[in-house]
Structures are given as structure tokens and as C-alpha cells.
Amino acid sequence: MSADAEVPTPASRRLVLDHARVVAEQADRHAVTLESMLAILRSTRLDDTAARTMAIDLATTALVGLRMATDQQRTSLLEPVVGAFARLRNDLRPLVRFGDLEVQFVEPPTTGRALPGAVAHAARAIVRSAVLAFVDKGETTKVRIQWDCDGLNLLIGIRDDGQGDLTAKDDSLRPIAERVSALDGTLSVSATPGWGSSLDIRLPLDPPAEPEPLVDAVEFSAREREVLKLVVAGARNNAIAEQLGISGNTVKFHVSNLLRKTGATSRAELAALARS
């Protein structure tokens, strides 16, 4: 098997990450819908008929919304920050209306920069996951959600009034940390016993620049490129010499030049640099 077949390309990795993000967001959306339906069915303010009707309406709306969201994800590249925040409020409205949780939404500035689709989706998923984590603890009655934009980053603040025992190592925060890390963002957790916990999240609006491929970043001759390709494939000097029709000493000369130009100290390091 060739080295190209063994090493995933950046494009294929992006497709895998995008698919995983969409699946994770849909799972979160389903979790919020189910939690909201349970809140409706358990509500003492609604009789059985009204509760069933509202639960059916919620499920129907969720299905329609899921289809619309899927279409939007395929076609939308940017979301105004205010619009993205409004969609978050809409996601959480049933849980707030029929549950025992009070949520305070602090609106982002209307002049904030539009959010790339991946950032907007991840931001809503992060907030939903955090709210569900607070609800699962059974101690939180109030949550404050704030978004802001400094032109380079989306800044998310989430605070609850729970016991204040949340830490960065809490298992409930693992999905959030993974989403933040996938976007090259930062997550900090602070807690005050008896006063609640806070999550502060920074999501860059521009993706990190992908490293330039080694063959483009370093100036190689045509023959050096051929030798490099075979080194990456795991070929030894004799095999390289035979395949390219050159002497073993010539292969050593080219490998030496490749090591010098790339700063690699071994063939293994040279191959790893070429693959990355």
C-alpha cells in the first residue's frame, strides 16, 4: 500500500471532523428536545390533554427544525452573531418555559462580526451541553448565558448558581472541551463553593492556518522530490537506487541534502515531517 493511501489528507480529516460535529450537534439538540418534553409531561401546570398536545407540537417542531438546520448547514457559510444567538434562545425556550430552570440571556452586540457556520454551530452546541450538564446535577436553578465578539473571537460566558464544585476535569465538560479544542479555542472553569460555577470560552472566528506542506515549504530539486517520496514510503537506499536507476552513493547524497534542508536528524523524522 502506498504512503498516500495510509495517511489521511487534510481534506479528508476536515470531512470527518465536520461529520462528527454535525452528529454531535444533532445529538445535543435531541437531548434538549427530550428534556423539554419530559418537563412538559411532568409539569403540574398542565393537564394531561394539554401536556400531550404540547409534547406532540414540540416533537413536530423539532423534526422540522432538524431538517431545516441540515439544509442550512449545507448552504450557509456565515451567520450574524445576533441571529446565531437567537437560534440558541429558540433551542432552549421549551426547557426554560416548562422546566424549573431560569435562564438569563445577555444579547451580543448587534455590530458583532458574522460567525462562520462551524463556530456558530459549535457555540450553540457548547451552551446546550453546559445547560444540560447543570440540569443533570439537579442543583442549578439559574443560568446566565452571555455572548460577545471582539472581532477575532466569539466570547462565551456561562454561569450557574449551583454548589460551585465544577472543575475542568469534570466528565460532563469533556464534550465541551473537545468542541473547543477542535476549533483551536480555550476553555477556563472557575467555581466558588456555594455560589456557582463559570465557564469562559474563546472560539477564534478564523481557523488556524494549515501548515504548508513540506514539499512546498522547502525548495527541492525534482530528483530530491522523487527520493523523498520513496523515503516516506519506507524504501531503503538500495531499493531507491534500483527504482530511480541511480547509484547508491547518489541516493545517499540526495538523502543527506534532504536532511540538511529540512533540519531532520533521521530518515524517520524526515518521513514524519513529509507526512504532517
Results as ranks from 00 to 15, higher is better:
G83E: 09
D206G: 05
R21E: 15
L63H: 13
T141A: 11
M37K: 06
E242P: 06
R21F: 02
D18E: 13
R260F: 10
T9R: 06
A59V: 14
G99Y: 06
A51N: 08
K261Y: 01
A222C: 03
G234R: 02
V227T: 09
A130D: 07
R202D: 07
S43D: 03
K252Q: 14
T140C: 10
R52K: 14
E226L: 12
S43Q: 00
L66R: 04
N237Q: 14
L152F: 09
G185W: 04
G196P: 00
T186L: 01
V23M: 08
E224R: 01
E219I: 03
R113A: 11
D71S: 09
N237H: 14
T140S: 11
A84V: 07
G138T: 05
V231D: 05
I126P: 11
S198M: 03
V96G: 07
A209P: 04
A168C: 00
L214F: 06
A27P: 01
E139N: 06
I201M: 03
D184Y: 09
K261L: 14
R260K: 14
A122H: 01
F85S: 11
C149M: 10
D150Y: 14
T9S: 14
R223P: 01
R275N: 11
E219L: 08
A191H: 01
A50H: 09
K169W: 05
V143D: 10
E210Q: 15
L95Q: 02
T33L: 12
A133D: 13
L214M: 15
A50N: 09
A191I: 07
G196F: 01
S181W: 06
T192D: 02
E212V: 15
R236V: 11
A268I: 02
V106M: 09
V251N: 10
T111N: 08
D165E: 13
R174H: 05
P175E: 02
L273F: 02
R236F: 08
P8F: 02
V143H: 11
W195F: 14
E212M: 12
V23L: 14
G196V: 04
S181F: 08
L173F: 00
R124Y: 11
A133M: 08
A27H: 13
V82R: 12
G83T: 12
Q146K: 15
F85I: 13
S190W: 05
T33H: 10
Q163A: 14
V215H: 03
S256G: 15
R29C: 11
D216M: 13
E226F: 05
P10R: 12
N257D: 12
T111E: 07
Q104E: 15
K252P: 00
D136K: 11
R21H: 02
G185K: 03
A123Q: 10
I201F: 07
A191V: 02
G138E: 04
A233F: 09
I145T: 13
R144Y: 00
G234K: 01
L270M: 08
I126N: 13
E6Y: 03
